[in-house]
Amino acid sequence: MVQQRMGRIQWGDLQFGPGSRYHVTAVTGLDDMPDIRAEDINRPDQHGDYTSPDTTGARIIQLGLGLRGDTPDDLRALTLALRAATQPQRQPAPLRFLDQDTLLYGKVRQRALPYDAENLWSTGTAALELYCADPYLYSLEEHTASTSEYSPAAGRTYPLVYVGAGRTYGDAGTSGRLTAVNSGASPAYPVLRIDGPVANPSIEQVTTGGSITLDATLQPGEYLIIDTRTRAILLMGTSPRRTWLRAGSQWPLLQPGSNVIAYRGSALPGAPGQSSLLTVTWRDTSL
């Protein structure tokens, strides 16, 4: 259950908050709005401005910690563990607010571990600053929904349930449609997986618009990963196939609330009784 108190925070192998030796004393930037980037310009000879759509910059998270050891040596071990876990990073890493149902991706940009000779015995303090280039707040749970393609000539269904890539995929939808619910307050960027066999697959965001069509053929056993955030299209999850995207396609997003996704494609000759599957994966998303 989501709660108002900050609760537990997970960074790498370290956990801060209740049940740990690292007490959370302060958090800033989590519920704050990141800085707005705007391109407003003055209206010549008129009051007011012409305003552009607002977008946000990076999110900055600051954590205040209280270290609680049993002895000075114990405190030193806590300090060294925190120092080791907050080294400069090549890529952002998950920062999980476990009791807030919130996930971010950040890099540690500042770390303060002061030494107070007058008071230092078994307690100390620390301050961390994390830079989140992606300002979105994601749910901890990753949602999935799947459906077979709508192919009038084949009229097939796909009742398969399988496990792959560490996720469990549920029952397929009907008539080439599925419903994806984004319980956040901002649009979510889904990851789309198409499993063959299928020719010229098409994915449409029925609720609000946006669709993509691929001039491609996937044989049985082949699959395609489409990341709507990075706009990568990867055959078998690794080989770029962006050139398969048909001109005029618009990348579908999951708006807050319920979203109906339609999946269409053509059956392949020589693959009777087999069906293609679309799996949509997303997290609830807010700013």
Results as ranks from 00 to 15, higher is better:
Gln219Thr: 13
Thr174Tyr: 05
Ser175Phe: 13
Ala199Phe: 01
Asn200Gly: 13
Thr217Lys: 12
Ile226Val: 14
Gly170Thr: 09
Ser186Pro: 00
Asp227Thr: 03
Pro197Lys: 07
Leu178Asn: 09
Ile194Asn: 07
Ile226Lys: 13
Tyr189Ser: 12
Ser186Leu: 08
Ser186Cys: 02
Asp195Ile: 01
Ile212Lys: 11
Pro190Asn: 07
Ala216Glu: 11
Gly209His: 09
Val181Asp: 04
Asp171Asn: 12
Ser202Glu: 15
Ala185Glu: 07
Ser202Gly: 12
Tyr189His: 14
Thr230Lys: 11
Gln219Gly: 08
Gly173Pro: 00
Gly184Glu: 01
Ala188Trp: 04
Ile225Met: 15
Asp227Cys: 08
Val181Glu: 06
Leu224Lys: 09
Thr217Asn: 03
Gly221Thr: 06
Arg167Lys: 14
Tyr223Trp: 15
Val191Glu: 08
Pro190Ser: 08
Ser211Gly: 10
Gly166Val: 04
Asn200Ile: 09
Gly184Asp: 01
Ala216Asn: 11
Thr217Phe: 01
Arg167Asn: 02
Val206Lys: 01
Ile203Phe: 13
Asn200Ser: 15
Asp171Thr: 11
Gly210Asp: 01
Gly170Pro: 05
Ser175Gly: 07
Arg193Val: 12
Ser175Cys: 05
Val198Asp: 09
Thr179Arg: 15
Arg193Lys: 09
Asp227Arg: 14
Arg229Asn: 05
Thr230Arg: 09
Ala172Met: 11
Pro190Cys: 03
Leu218Arg: 10
Tyr189Pro: 00
Gly210Met: 06
Ala188Arg: 03
Thr207Lys: 02
Arg167Phe: 10
Gly221Asn: 06
Pro190Gln: 10
Ser211Tyr: 05
Ala185Asp: 13
Ala165Tyr: 11
Thr207Leu: 00
Pro220Leu: 05
Thr217Trp: 00
Gln205Val: 01
Ile225Pro: 00
Asp195Phe: 14
Asn182Val: 03
Ser211Thr: 03
Thr230Trp: 05
Leu224Ala: 12
Val206Ala: 07
Asp171Tyr: 09
Glu222Arg: 15
Arg193Phe: 10
Ser202Tyr: 03
Ala165Val: 03
Asn200Met: 12
Leu224Ser: 12
Pro190His: 10
Pro187Met: 04
Ala180Asp: 02
Leu214Trp: 13
Ile194Val: 15
Pro201Leu: 10
